[in-house]
């Protein structure tokens, strides 16, 4: 199930990871995305993750749950997650569906997302000095 080309990319940007989904993913691809991303958070010692979901055609219950889980797992691994690029139609459908989007932080676009991460991440390391 996990064969085939990756339909998403995870790129490093300083202390952050930028994960972009390139096309509509099916459930097993979403699971693969989740696994890869959580692994990369460890291997890259990332402090924050931006997930760009602009290319997803729908965020149904499974996709929402997966994103929520990623946020939770990332938090446990010491990284903050921001979801960016939820399209207005998709947002509408999520609300209609009755999705509980939980405590995952969202931002409009990549720029806002990175700014959001900065505000979360730069604060904690300071007390160490």
């Amino acid at each position: 199930m996990n064969g085939g080309p990756r339909l998403f990319s995870i790129l490093r940007q300083g202390p952050y990871l930028i994960a972009s989904i390139h096309t509509a993913l099916d459930d097993s691809q979403l699971v693969r995305f989740q696994q890869d991303l959580v692994e990369r958070i460890g291997s890259d010692r990332a402090r924050g993750v931006v997930i760009d979901v602009a290319a997803l055609d729908v965020l149904d219950s499974f996709a929402s749950r997966t994103l929520r889980d990623i946020g939770e797992m990332a938090r446990l691994r010491g990284a903050v997650t921001v979801i960016v690029g939820i399209q207005p139609d998709v947002a509408f459908a999520m609300v209609e569906l009755g999705m509980d989007t939980g405590r995952v932080v969202t931002a409009l676009d990549l720029e806002e997302g990175l700014a959001e991460l900065d505000s979360h991440v730069t604060a904690p390391p300071a007390p160490r000095t």
Binding site: V58, D60, V90, F92, A93, L97
Partner: peptide, 26 residues
């Protein structure tokens, strides 16, 4: 999504339909 677009549903409605189809097909 294709059929709904052809029928002239708005993009919002198309996304609603696609989401519903996704749920029941899953």
């Amino acid at each position: 999504r294709e059929v709904a677009t052809r029928l002239g549903f708005s993009t919002t409605e198309v996304t609603l339909i696609a989401t519903a189809v996704s749920e029941i097909t899953r």
